[in-house]
Structure formats: structure tokens, C-alpha cells
Nucleic acid binder design. Structure first.
Lengths: 356, 356
DNA sequence: TTTAGCACTCTTTCGCGTCAAGTGCTAAAC
DNA sequence: GTTTAGCACTTGACGCGAAAGAGTGCTAAA
């Protein structure tokens, strides 16, 4: 960390060319890149000695590193950072890829759950990395509307529409003899007083009042409130899904047991992942590159929040080696999350996704 | 496969003792077991030479195998099979373990989904293997009861209770102006005619009839039926969950990349797992031991179906190396699936799980 | 029938020399 | 002043053989 803060501003054109070449070769092969192998690339009109000198300087500046004396160079986190921010050309999705994405977006309208699932699969196969999909992680959704389904004399199903457009249900069994009338009254009370609240918003006076209004069937309220409480709490746990974990094994950087163990452990400790996602910027594609302490070494995580009506309801991203094909991954994640934002979830109509 | 069909009947007491000792030592250490290391075990009163002779015979009979000429012996699949069927003492769950299991069963009553999830976590930590939980895989559930929730003038939520006691919901947006009356009529038609059917059960005459009954709002029927069709189809896909994948990495038999790759691939190709589970016996704990062609080499899968009201709605099991602590795993899986059978899902009350 | 002893086999481990890749530096060329 | 050619040097990867260790099967004695 000598002077690596004013990232990249001071680099000459030639240094940029060489740095970019090193990074792209490394992304393709995974091997350290030596001066000679660069010379053979068509767009580098310098000799290996010149390149060596430049590479030595790039190393001093913190963009490259040698795994050991006598090996080629490998990009550092700083190097990737600069590449992503300044050097990289953005990838144009092909027509086929756009069509696949649009298909998913249109067909699965309305259920964030299944849209994320299919999108994960598609992205995993398009990019050859592991896809990460998160559902309604932050700002626990509240309940917007209540309804019911009568099961038998003593049991019913409480149906709740949540603020993130998902639906929760809960079986409730009580000691009161139920009928449609009672339940209709119950839900209208709930819809009047128990909407939009968080777990702390449920107060004893509210419950007392509700019990009073229910009259003889007042004993209903207690189990119902308990159910509501659980639902709110449950929705506070995020749901993370991984697709294409096996693809990671194809990359040599993950092909040793120790590294793989770390990755799997990270995937299973979902809270850590959540922290990264929650701490990120809602409005742009976020790129975390390994060994920040947050991620496993040599890995990178590219993701973007999905917003519905201005509210973040989930996120979708790609996890892979730090030598990732950033341009393609970024384009894909961006296209998908933009297309989703504000369009789906609302309903079945809507010809989503005007392209580009 | 010399004469390995009449499994184990012809074994002398001494052979059984030795076989059992070899298997249990191997389960504990993972290493091939040699004659000398057995002598040191307290319950073996024979010299290494005697044991060598017996082991040679056990090898001929197909219960043991030598990885190479000068190594100790390792159990074969047949050996494990015999051990599980005849040699093993069943593990008694400790009081603490039973309490943990009961807590889960009681607290999470009513939602198969979350009960399986917590149970998976607990079993994974109790047994130190990977837990596999499957939800409603077989005999696609049918729809038992319909209800609705009015969202706005043109949109409503169709709520369906399925035969496996799960609940599905679907957003539906239509061109008709909606109100409670219309939807009440709609659901009563659905509850009369569209209950208990499979995707093939939906016929054109049924739809025509329903449209006629809805009168002016007949155009509702088509999107609703489409939604029903999708729900039935979606429920035909099983949902498999894995917990504690990282634990596998602790066992040397999975600590090489090639093997790990196979395992992860198998976990991601859920259909294969489903096939194993579907083909199994509903009424007992099923034990598959590796290299049947179905499972990855050196692995084993112990699981049992969970039944609700006589119908299989899921399964829970444990996946690990074939040198697995079968007795503990079997007891755990059995206790849990028995406690669940027919008790939860129905409702919130019910003091489940009388112990033992 | 059981056991002690022994020669034999096979894997694992370690050290060691060779090889190839890639570097930094110096001196010459442009 | 910049670029390039040439060269000595460093370092990890690879392959080989020797030695060590574990365990066996067989024979002969108890």
C-alpha cells in the first residue's frame, strides 16, 4: 500500500495498456502472466524488456504482484479495482442472451420467488459462475392486508399480503367454534388496526381493544396475534439461494480442499453474505473483490439490489474467482435487475424489459 | 460377488465379532484396519495371526476388501449392509437430544416447510453429516380448497390449500372489474368443480360450464384456470434442501476435488436424488450405501419418508461417507420422522412426540 | 486349532537433481 | 533519453530412487 489511493490517475497510456492486457490474459488463463507471453499478443508493440520494466513499476504501484520471484505477474485487488472502474469495456449482451432474459422476466411475472430462481439458473449457465439470489433481506416487510380460509370448525388459515408483495400464510387452531361471520369480523379488525406494523408495533391496548370488539370470540385474538408476530419475525430472516456451486470447482483457484471449504462455509453462514449485501449501494452494481477480509481470498462478488416501488426487496448477483469476466457479469446483473425494478411483482400484464 | 447373496447367515460368532470390530474401527478412523490394531482392542481375545486368517476368509466372502496387498482391510458395501442389518446395536438418543428434537417438533407445528428446515439444522449438528430434506416430492399434491384476497379492482390473490396441507398463492390480474361478490361466486365454483384434480383433469367442458355459471364475468375463468394449471405443475417439482454441506469436507474421503465435485454435482442435480427417494420404501428407514451406481462412491444416504394422514409428503435424511455412524443416524431419522407422522401440519395444538 | 516368526509386497515420504519460466540488470542500439 | 538484446540468477514443478513403515500370507511349532 505505498501510494495506491489515487487509483490509476497517474498511469501512462502504455501502463494502462499493459495492465489491461495482463488482467485480461490472467482472467482467461488463470496463470501468472510473464512479459514474453504479452509480446505475442497483437496489440502490444513493445519488446519483452520494456514490458518487464513497466510491469516492475506497476508492481511498485500496487497493481500487480509476483507470486514468487521468477514467476509472471498476477493482478492485485487494487489492479482489478482499477480495471473494473476504468479500463474495462462493457460487454454487450447478445440478442440470444437478451431474449433468454426477457423470457424469464415475462413468463414468471408476479412471483419474485420463482423469477429469482429461474434467473439464477440462467445467469449461472450464461456466466459459468455461481449465482446468488437474495429475497427480501432488508427492512423487514410489514403486513398490508389480511384474509382467511376456513378449514374446519376449529381451524382456519390466515393469509397475509406483505408489503413486498409476497404472501404468507399460517395455520391457526383455536378453541372457539368458527364460521365465516366471525372470521370476516376478525379480518376486518385486523385490516383496520394491524396493518403496516412491525413486531414492536403490537401493543397490549391494541390487543385488548380487538378482543373487546370480537365479543364472545375474543379468545381468538391471542393466537392470531401470536401468529402475526411469528410471521413478521420469520420474514426478518432472509432467504439466500445459490445456483451452480459446482461451477466454482472448475476454477483452479477453488480446486483445493481448503479454499473450497472456506467457500462452502461462507455460503452456509448466510448472515455474512447478508451483511455485505445490506451494506452496499442500492443504486448501482456493487463489486466486491476478494481479501477485503469480507470475502474469501481470490474471489469476487458482483451484485445489485432489486427494487420494487422504490423499496429494496432482494438482490441478485454472481460469485466467482476474482479473475472473473467482469464485463459480462456486470452487464447481465445490471440488465436483469433493471428490468425487474418496478415492473414485475406488481402484476401479470406489463410488457417488461424494453431492451437497452 | 462370489456367494454374497445369503448375506451373513453362515458367519461364525467369531467372524461376526471381527467383522463388526473392523467396521466400527473403520467408521471411527477412516483408515484401513489391520490385524494388529484389532488385537489391542479389549474385546478381541485372539492373536493377530488368527485374526488375519479370519479376515482373509471374510475377504473371500465379500465383506471386506484390501485397497492393496499390504494394507489393512476396509468394509465393502456388502459388509456395511450386513453390519447395518444384523450386527449393529441401535443407538439410544440421549435425553438432551430427544429434548432438542421435541422442541423443534412442537414449536414449529403447522408449517412443514419450517419444521423441516429447523430439523435439518439440528440433525446436521447432531450427526456431523449433511442433512437432506425433501418436500412433497411424489404424487403431486392436488388442490383441496380455494379462497381469495381482493387486491384492487382488477387484481386478486388466489389462495389454494393443497392436499399435503401446504398453501399456494397466485397473483391474478384480469380485465373484469372485481368485487367480493364475483370472487365469492368464483371460489364457490372452484370449490365445487376444481378440487382434487391433476393437470390432466382439467377439461374443456368443465371450463365452458364454469364460464357459463360466471355469466358476465366469464372471462375470469381462463386466467384462473391457467394459474391453477401452473400451480399444479409447480408443485410437481420437488424442493430439496441441504444443510451442513461443509461437514462433508471434514471427511478425508471427500477431501479431494474430484470426489467433492461429484457430490456437489449430485446435490445440484436434484432429480437423481428424487429418484432414489421415490423408489424407496415408505415405511422404514432406507439405507443406500455407495457405489450402487446411484450414489457417489464411498457415500451413504439414510432417509425416511414423512407421512401425513397416510400420504407421503416429504422425506428427511442424512448423507455422509459410507463409514457413517449408522446407528446414531438411523435412530435420529427414525425418531424425527415418526414423531412427525400424522401429528404436525394438522394444527397448532397436539402435544407431539411421546418419547420412546 | 492357535500362535509366533519371517520373508515379501506395496504405499508413502523424503531428498535431490534437472528443467523451464521469468525476472532484473547491464550495455548496446535507436 | 528511450528501447531492446543478452545474460546470469532465482524459484517452483517434476521425476526418480532409496528408505521407512505397515500389513500380509505362509510355515512351523505349541
Amino acid at each position: 500500500m505505498k501510494n495506491g489511493l489515487v487509483v490509476g490517475g497517474e498511469l501512462s497510456q502504455r501502463k494502462k495498456l499493459i495492465l489491461r492486457s495482463v488482467i485480461e490474459s490472467h482472467i482467461a488463463t488463470g496463470e501468472p502472466i510473464g512479459s514474453k507471453s504479452l509480446v505475442s499478443k497483437s496489440d502490444i508493440p513493445y519488446s519483452s524488456a520494456t514490458i518487464r520494466n513497466e510491469m516492475a513499476e506497476l508492481e511498485n504501484m500496487g497493481y500487480l504482484i509476483q507470486p514468487h520471484t521468477s514467476a509472471g505477474r498476477v493482478p492485485t485487488t487494487l489492479g482489478y479495482r482499477f480495471y473494473v472502474d476504468a479500463l474495462m469495456e462493457s460487454y454487450k449482451l447478445t440478442a440470444t442472451e437478451i431474449i433468454s432474459l426477457n423470457n424469464i422476466i415475462q413468463n414468471k411475472m408476479g412471483e419474485l420467488d420463482s423469477i429469482l430462481r429461474s434467473a439464477s439458473k440462467l445467469i449461472a449457465s450464461m456466466t459459468n459462475y455461481t449465482t446468488v439470489a437474495v429475497q427480501s433481506p432488508y427492512g423487514a416487510p410489514t403486513i398490508e392486508q389480511y384474509s382467511y380460509m376456513l378449514l374446519d370448525e376449529r381451524a382456519f388459515l390466515l393469509v397475509m399480503r406483505m408489503s413486498d408483495e409476497s404472501v404468507s400464510t399460517k395455520h391457526i387452531r383455536v378453541d372457539v367454534t368458527l364460521d365465516d361471520n366471525i372470521l370476516r369480523r376478525l379480518t376486518s379488525i385486523l385490516n383496520a388496526s394491524f396493518v403496516g406494523i412491525t413486531s414492536e408495533g403490537i401493543t397490549l391496548p391494541m390487543m385488548m381493544q380487538a378482543e373487546k370488539e370480537m365479543g364472545a370470540a375474543g379468545s381468538l385474538i391471542s393466537p392470531v396475534v401470536k401468529a402475526i408476530y411469528e410471521i413478521i419475525g420469520k420474514n426478518e430472516e432472509a432467504d439466500i439461494n445459490f445456483e451452480g456451486l459446482n461451477k466454482l470447482l472448475e476454477y483452479p483457484e477453488f480446486s483445493n480442499v481448503e479454499q473450497m471449504r472456506r467457500v462452502i462455509r461462507m455460503f452456509e453462514k448466510k448472515e455474512d453474505f447478508m451483511k455485505i449485501i445490506e451494506g452496499a449501494d442500492d443504486d448501482k452494481v456493487n463489486i466486491f473483490i476478494g481479501s477485503n477480509g469480507e470475502l474469501v481470498d481470490n474471489s469476487a462478488f458482483v451484485f445489485k439490489t432489486i427494487k420494487v416501488g422504490g423499496r429494496a426487496v432482494g438482490a441478485i448477483g454472481v460469485f466467482g474467482p476474482s479473475r472473473m469476466d467482469y464485463s459480462k457479469v456486470i452487464s447481465t446483473v445490471e440488465y436483469l435487475s433493471n428490468s425487474l425494478a418496478g415492473e414485475q411483482v406488481i402484476g401479470l400484464l406489463g410488457d417488461a424489459a424494453d431492451k437497452d
